[in-house]
């Protein structure tokens, strides 16, 4: 009997040691790499520069039979969002960033929250977090390293095709923001449907004569102050032949698409003055009616986001942002 107790007690510890001993990249190493040698205290370790937006989702009800999430019923749901650029520097020049992002938070009720984090590329260059770590290392090492990295990662071909033809627009309002990872919509009968989605712009804005480090932030603030900014929320439904666990491969253009409604942005605020700064836009915070796929990139996001959030929350608690917010 005593041996049984001991075995039961030691089992989790042994499992733990085994996993610890592996040479895989940890969430801490990942965030260390993202933040660089000197972290910007109190700010997100990735996509550090951004601004808060507010508005609502106007649902047309078209997705009701696919998901029991309350926001897909016809009607409007308020949202808090964040438009940002890739990188760890909260003062980086807007126009130099290779990726632009839209994050959304729907606070549906005390028991239902949905956070979304979307980027301009439709696919990932790599399919797992460890290769992603090496990709960031290569980006930091310079053009030769990244060329070599892509040569060793044939799965990045679709991403490279996209990157080759992508033309940055002159506004956050004119970009397409993709979920990249797939999720399952789950309806009242419990039937799952694998989907990806994109926020598609309703305006086109040429790159034009934008100038200055905050060009995109100023442009969108002026635009939202003048009129609402609208995106169509378009879902793409996988069929049985599509792999919903591989975020390096897009699904064929022939797949059924359903527009669930419109994202309407009506307000913007500097990030440290707005509601979005406090939010961890972990895309695995999901309401009833949406679940995560087994995509390894998607599943790596919670731990990495949590580590970044823990660090900056602690720093903010210790007063790291007081100077900046008084400016």
């Amino acid at each position: 009997m005593k041996q049984l107790y001991l075995a039961l007690l030691l089992l989790p510890a042994i499992g733990g040691l085994h996993a610890e001993a592996s040479d895989k990249v940890s969430a801490q190493q990942f965030v260390d790499l993202q933040q660089g040698k000197t972290a910007f205290a109190g700010f997100r370790r990735a996509h550090a520069k951004g601004l808060c937006v507010s508005g609502e989702f106007r649902s047309n009800g078209n997705l009701q039979s696919y998901s029991k999430a309350s926001l897909f019923q016809p009607g409007t749901t308020p949202l808090v969002g964040r438009l940002s650029i890739a990188g760890n520097n909260p003062a980086a020049p807007d126009l130099k960033a290779p990726v632009r992002s839209l994050a959304l938070s729907f606070s549906l009720s005390r028991t239902e929250q949905w956070r979304l984090a979307m980027n301009t590329p439709p696919v990932m260059a790599v399919a797992d977090p460890h290769s992603f770590y090496q990709q960031i290392q290569a980006i930091q090492a310079g053009p030769d390293a990244i060329k070599q990295f892509f040569a060793q990662h044939p799965e990045s071909s679709e991403f490279l095709t996209w990157a080759g033809q992508y033309q940055p627009t002159g506004s956050f309002a004119a970009e397409t923001y993709n979920s990249i990872n797939a999720f399952y919509l789950v309806n009242a009968k419990g039937e799952p449907q694998a989907v990806r989605w994109a926020m598609q712009p309703t305006v086109s804005v040429a790159p034009g004569n934008l100038q200055g480090d905050n060009a995109l932030q100023q442009e969108i603030a002026t635009r939202i102050a003048a009129d609402q900014v609208v995106f169509d929320w378009v879902f793409t439904l996988a069929d049985a032949t599509d792999d919903e666990t591989n975020s390096t491969k897009a699904w064929p253009a022939s797949r059924q698409q359903i527009t669930a409604g419109q994202i309407v942005l009506t307000g913007s605020t500097a990030q440290l003055d707005g509601d979005c700064h406090a939010i961890n836009f972990d895309p695995l915070v999901l309401p009833t009616g949406i679940t995560a796929t087994a995509d390894p990139i998607l599943r790596a996001r919670s731990a990495a986001y949590a580590e970044s959030y823990r660090r900056r929350a602690k720093e903010q608690r210790q007063g790291a942002l007081q100077e900046s917010s008084n400016e």
Binding site: A13, S26, A27, Q28, P129, R299, A300, S302, A306
Partner: peptide, 19 residues
């Protein structure tokens, strides 16, 4: 013991079982 081990691992791991 399981909770302590799980807590220690899940804040570090980027593996699919983390969620």
């Amino acid at each position: 013991m399981s909770m302590l081990a799980a807590g220690l691992l899940m804040i570090r791991s980027l593996d699919p079982w983390q969620l």
